[in-house]
Amino acid sequence: MLSDVLLVSAPGKVILHGEHAVVHGKVALAVALNLRTFLQLQPHSSGKVSLNLPNIGIKRAWDVARLQLLDMSFLEQGDPTSPILEKLEKLKEVADFPEDCTDHERLAVLAFLYLYLCICRKQRWRAEDLELINKWAFQGEKVIHGNPSGVDNAVSTWGGALRYQQGKISSLKRPPALKILLINTKVPRSTKALVLNVRNRLLKFPKIVAPLLTSINAISLECERVLEEMATAVPAPEHYLALEELIDMNQHHLNALGVGHTSLDQLCQVTMAHGLHSKLTGAGGGGCGITLLRPDLTGPEVEAVKQALTGCGFDCWETSIGAPGVSVHTAASLDAPVWQALDGLCAGQWASSS
């Protein structure tokens, strides 16, 4: 049981190259962002385990004594680390959802309860045990996404940059800390539907789409080569020019696959007007995009781009790639303003009964 407050964090991630092509066996490059989700665990004596996710408006609590009295044997049926549908259906009864609970709230709470109950019953783990952290994070991904690739949880656990192909994940050595803009178009989309559309287009036009996927694979491999070269030598202007060309080519290919969107076209046009290069990241059809920031850009130039993007109604964050993975923080390791802002208002906060 915790004797003091524990604060941990994990980075977000974006796909640099390989969206959709990775579904068809090609290489994808994923990188950790210096935009982090924080989890604060704090003991208290209320006899409850409380979950507070302020960014998505979730605040729930359960009596620990009640949870201990419930029949949880179903969690141990089959593979105890696999959240199959039958287990999740039974777990909904434990969650006791209110009638006005939305789907994303239900999934978030189910993921928490599944991990909390399974770990408390079956596991004793240490924060530094990254393999175990990654394993449990993957189970949370399964609850929410059904059949995830494993890229998201792996990048957030280990940080840095990863190469993913056909279920095999390997780390890129010392990726350069490239500065980027992460832009949210705020246009919702269905990843499942977009993946299906690409598959249908491949079946309809195999001689056209298959070479596009092969070309995207080549873009990922060339980007990997450039990043490794930048990691072993002083990054030069030609490195950034190469990365910008790869970004442009990949964006055009993704549009040809049918996963573009007018909002993403607008994003690319706005940044190109400022001499910068952008592409969608992830599923496409809206969602998010990334813009590479060259090291020669001045602060006012970057601010001008950000203002132009926010003027289009987009959300925009300036960050960098290659962030460290899951981390444990203390008050001494964070700046005072950061600690004060996080105290009691983390992206995730879990308070357990002592």
Rank of each mutant, 00 (worst) to 15 (best):
T298N: 13
R294C: 01
C288R: 00
T319K: 10
G260V: 03
T271M: 05
T298S: 15
C312A: 13
G322S: 04
N250D: 11
E303V: 12
K279T: 04
P337M: 05
L243A: 01
E245I: 12
H261A: 14
L280F: 05
G282W: 01
S327G: 09
A332I: 11
L280G: 02
P300A: 07
P337G: 03
D248M: 11
L309W: 00
G322I: 04
M272Y: 12
L297K: 03
H277A: 06
V338Y: 06
V270E: 08
N250A: 13
I321N: 01
A242W: 06
C268V: 12
G313F: 12
T310Q: 15
G286W: 00
A242K: 15
A273C: 11
P300Q: 07
P295W: 03
G284S: 07
L280C: 07
G289R: 02
T291W: 03
V302F: 02
W339P: 00
Q307H: 09
A242F: 05
H261D: 13
A308H: 02
V326S: 13
G258P: 09
V326T: 14
G287F: 00
A256Q: 13
C288T: 07
G311Q: 09
E318G: 06
P295R: 02
T291F: 02
G313W: 10
L267S: 02
W317E: 09
T319A: 10
G325Q: 07
G275I: 05
P295Q: 05
S333K: 03
K279P: 05
G299K: 09
